[in-house]
């Protein structure tokens, strides 16, 4: 119990928000709109899972937003050209993995700091996409939305896929050697090396992994609407990093888990619809989100102080 205090406190905060909403704005829980809102966050959850892995390994990736946009646009163009979804999906995942591999190569092999490397790839990809697309929407054929299923079925498939991935990854992080390697490398790379793990390889692969997940997330987003806007991934990186950190994954590596990241994501994703339901004016949204992030880190700080004593 005590071990998961941090994660549980986020869940507690989430429950408090939900309770407050149930009291003041029960309409929030009407099933259909709620399902739509949750489906909108499914791609974000997939990327957040990848981000949690990266941060646990003591790295960071701020290029996910740009990779997300590039994958979305490329996949959209392929679909519009008549490629079947079965081919576009691996193509998008592969493209994401490719960009991830570029980041991973620079970080793991050339030993460059990940924050700067991914900052550079973020800017480069975003501006490259601007240069080529100039913001133009990609219109998709009708067969793409919800993979040709009915809307509710499609939404359930997407949410199910994201949750399934979360469960599988969370399990793998605990029970499979590769998952534990991430914690080992994030805690102390030198010790991990002496224990026979190759930190460089782990780092490279974790970047490839988040790239692939970003490509997957882009596809899950693509399937939700009949158009792709090239700006679609703008700001995604901050959203997922904030979610992961609020969920108790330590930015200094080696600590935290995917369930916490999941709770953090839900908490932050609640803010905007909750404000709408409580009829609070939109001007406060950013300030509230910033305050939640600060609160979470302050809690972390206080707790680690107590532990030190």
């Amino acid at each position: 119990m005590k071990r998961y205090f941090r994660e549980l406190s986020v869940v507690g905060a989430l429950l408090a928000v939900l309770l407050g909403l149930a009291w003041f704005a029960p309409a929030f829980f009407s099933p259909q709109p709620l399902l739509s809102l949750v489906t909108r966050e499914a791609p974000t959850l997939v990327v957040a899972c990848g981000m949690a892995c990266v941060i646990i390994t003591r790295q960071i990736d701020i290029s996910v937003g740009s990779i997300f946009s590039v994958c979305s646009v490329c996949a959209g163009l392929l679909v519009a050209r008549g490629w079947p979804l079965e081919l576009v999906l691996p193509a998008s995942v592969g493209l994401g993995a490719l960009f991830g591999a570029l980041n991973g190569f620079l970080v793991a092999v050339l030993r460059l700091p990940s924050i700067v490397v991914t900052l550079a790839t973020m800017v480069t990809l975003r501006q490259g996409l601007n240069l080529i697309r100039q913001g133009e929407f990609v219109n998709l054929p009708d067969r793409v939305q919800w993979f040709g299923l009915s809307q509710t079925a499609g939404q359930l498939v997407l949410v199910g896929a994201a949750l399934g991935l979360l469960v599988a990854l969370a399990w793998a992080m605990r029970h499979i050697a590769a998952g534990r390697y991430l914690y080992a490398v994030g805690t102390d790379a030198e010790a991990a090396r002496l224990a026979g793990i190759r930190p460089q390889l782990v780092t490279l692969l974790v970047f490839v992994f988040i790239g692939a997940l970003t490509g997957l997330g882009a596809m899950m987003n693509l399937a939700q609407s009949p158009q792709v806007q090239p700006l679609t991934g703008n700001g995604l990186e901050l959203k997922v990093i904030a979610a992961v950190v609020v969920g108790g994954v330590a930015i200094s590596g080696g600590r935290g888990n995917l369930w916490g990241a999941f709770a953090g994501l839900l908490l932050l994703a609640c803010v905007s619809p909750a404000l709408t339901h409580l009829h609070v004016e939109a001007y406060w949204e950013k300030a509230v989100q910033g305050a939640i992030i600060l609160l979470a880190v302050v809690a972390d700080g206080l707790r680690s102080r107590q532990n030190n004593r």
Binding site: R58, R111, V185, D188, I251
Partner: peptide, 8 residues
């Protein structure tokens, strides 16, 4: 060397 950690 160990892989450079995230700086901050």
């Amino acid at each position: 060397q160990s892989t450079p950690p995230l700086s901050p």
